[in-house]
Write a protein that binds this DNA or RNA. Sequence first.
RNA 1: UCCUCGAUAGCUCAAUGGCAGAGCGGGUGGCUGUUAACCACUAGGUUCCAGGUUCGAGUCCUGGUCGAGGAGCCA
Length: 434
Amino acid sequence: MAAPWVEIRRVADFENREVTIKGWLFNKRSSGKIHFLQLRDGTGFIQGVMVKQAVPEEVFELAKTLWLEASLEVTGVVRADERAPSGFELTVTGLRPIQNPSEEYPIGKKDHGIDFLMDHRHLWLRSRGQHAVMRVRDQVIWSARSFLRDRGFLLVDSPILTGAVGEGASGLFDLDYFDTGKAFLAQTGQLYAEAAAAAYGKVYCFGPTFRAEKSKTRRHLTEFWMIEPEVAFYDHHDNMKLQEDLVSAIVRDVLENCVPQLTILERDLEPLRKVVAPFYHISYDEAVDKLRSLGSDIQHGEDFGNDDETLLTQQYDKPLFVECYPKKVKAFYMKEHPDRSDLVLCDDLLAPEGYGEIIGGSQREDDLDRLLTRIREQGLPEESYSWYLDLRRYGSFVHSGFGMGVERVVAWICGLQHIREAIPWPRTIYRIHP
RNA sequence: UCCUCGAUAGCUCAAUGGCAGAGCGGGUGGCUGUUAACCACUAGGUUCCAGGUUCGAGUCCUGGUCGAGGAGCCA
C-alpha cells in the first residue's frame, strides 16, 4: 500500500506512479484552492501540486500551516508536465510534516548581503546555487582522482600536523604539541609526496592545507584543499603535459555531467568548451614584456601582481602556462634552469577569464649540494629538512610535481566571484564560524 | 598590515541638517496553474557604540567596534 520512497532525481522512472518524497519545503505558493509546494531532498528539486478537491480537507488545511524549510514526507503521483522546469511534478495525495518550524526561516527569497549569508552558511548551503556549486566541486574532485587512478597514480596522503616547515617560515599556523614544542599545520604535502614518489613512482596527496597569511582577497582562504601529484622521472615538460591533461579532463567531465548546475549558476559554457589541450605557453620573460606593452609597470625579476595576472589571462581564451620564473621569487626546492642560473624550471597555470593561478608546479632540485645551498640562502632551518635531504642522498632522481587548488578550480569553472563559495565551510582571516 | 567604502525594520536598501520610508519576510483576508506568484489591509525602529557641533543630527566632526572591496603574499 505504502508508496515507495523515491529520490527526486529518480522520479522520471516512476511516471504515473504514487511515490513518497522525503525532504524539505523550500518555497510555497497558493492560489486559494491549489497549493504549490516546492520540495528539495538533496538529489533534486520538484514542485508538489496540491488541489483542494483532491485531498482531504485536513490535509489541505495542514499545508497552509507549513513554514519554509519544514521537513516533510510528501506522497503524490509523478506527472510529466511541460510547465515544470524539471519536466515532472508531483500531484500530491498525502502530506506528513516531520518537523514544522515555529519561526521564520532566516534566508529569504530576495537578495542577502554576503555578511548575512556567511553568518548563515549552514543554512545557505541549502539554496539552489550552493547545491550547484557543491555538485561541481564533487565532480572536480572525483574527476581528478579517477584521472590519476587511471594513470596508475597511488594516493599517499601526507600529514596535516608537521614538525618541519613547508615552503617558507611565514604564514604557518602553529600549536603546542605535547612536550616536543611547536607543531605546524601543513602548508603543502609536497615534501612528503616527493618521498612517496621515491617509493612508489607516481603518487599524489589530497587534503586540506593551511596558510596563516593575512590575505584578504577573492582568491584566498586560510584553509583550502589541494591535489598534489608528484612523479618520479618526470621533467618540467612532462609535468606541464600532465597538468594540461588533468585540467582538460576535469573540464570535460564537468561539461558532461554538470550542465544543469552550471545553468543554475548562469555560467557561460562557451569559454569552458574551449578548454582543450594544448594550452598556451609563455616564458616568464615574455610575459613581463607582454605585460609592459599592455601598460603594466612590472619589472623583470618581480613576481606578478594580481592585476598583472588578470591582465595576462584576459589575452588568452584557454589556460596559460607561464614558465621559468626568477629563482629569487620562488621556493627553495625548485630546479635551477640548466641554461639560466637566475631562473628555475617551474610553471604556473593561469585559468582564463581573469581567474588566474590554479596550479603551481616545478621540477624539483635533485642535487644535494645545490639544494643545501638554497636552503641556507633562504635562511631555512636545515635540521628540519634532514629527512628531505635524504631523498637526494639515497637514489636521487629527476622528479616533478604540482599543486592544484581545488577551490580555485571550482570558482573558475562555476564562474564564482569569490572563492569562499567554492568550499562548504570557508575559513578566511576574519571568519572561522560557522 | 595598508588603502577605500559601509553599518537605518527580521532581510535588502531609501531618506538636501527639518514628520523614519519602500520591497521582501511576518499577521489577517482574497484568488484553481503559481514559477523570487499576485491583490488588499496590517504589525514592525535605542538609525552600530561613545562623545561633540547645532534651535534641530540617520545625515556634519572626533574616537572606537564590526563588515565588505582592493593591495601585498600565494593554490
